[in-house]
Design a protein around this nucleic acid. Structure first.
Length: 196
DNA sequence: TCGCTGATCATCT
DNA sequence: GATGATCAGCGAA
């Protein structure tokens, strides 16, 4: 590869998602926390190796990559970048801004509003996203789609990604400063000790 | 508020 | 056969 891998614009795209809305049926979520995964050059990415599961990320951008995690949870990424770069951004948390009743029905009545879509698995659950949505085209306004933010950028903070055991110190997680729905940082128990 | 643990299975080696 | 981009519930402080 002689071309420089588009890490800079991937991170820029990730930041532009903060404050944007992901819409699924009646439910809309304003994203407050995301993580970038840089395909084959990122050991923490599922696309580090090209396998049947990660194949969707090597395809065209603006598709949904949904995977099943820890035997119980679904998590959703937005595929981005030119075909073959296998970049993706994991949606980690957000605030439910419409379809509150529907989201609460999926998550449980006792869940406080701030936590309805707090955490990647909670976010997919609130939106009703599952395995059948893998590969969905986000530019299709009829289905799950993205409404990019048009108002000024919020104040954004960057830090290390949550729960990854490889490349654990790369600051590719972004969140809106001070937002209550953002996950608490938790280092993977398998990650090597941070270098100091 | 913090830290540990069990649940549970698709995917990869 | 092991692993993991998680969550909720529990007990301790």
């Amino acid at each position: 590869m002689t071309d420089e891998y588009p890490v800079g614009s991937l991170l820029e795209f990730a930041r532009s998602l903060l404050g944007s809305r992901i819409v699924s049926g009646d439910v809309a979520v304003r994203l407050t926390e995301v993580e970038a995964y840089a395909g084959p050059l990122d050991p923490a990415s599922h696309a580090y190796n090209r396998t049947p599961r990660s194949e969707i990320m090597f395809g065209p951008p603006m598709r949904l990559y949904v995977y099943f995690s820890y035997g119980i949870h679904w998590c959703a990424n937005i595929v981005w970048g030119e075909e073959g770069t296998a970049c993706a951004v994991l949606m980690r948390a957000g605030q439910v801004v419409s379809g509150l009743d529907e989201a609460r029905r999926r998550r449980g009545a006792a869940v406080p509003e701030k936590r309805l879509a707090s955490g990647p698995a909670n976010l997919t659950k609130a939106l009703g996203i599952g395995g059948t949505d893998n590969g969905a085209d986000l530019s299709d306004a009829e289905g799950i789609h993205l409404e990019l933010r048009t108002d000024p950028a919020p104040i954004i903070v960057a830090g290390p990604r949550v729960g990854v055991s490889k490349a654990a110190d790369v600051p590719w997680r972004f969140w809106i400063a001070g937002d209550r729905s953002v996950s608490a940082y938790k280092r993977s128990p398998r990650a090597p000790a941070p270098s100091d």
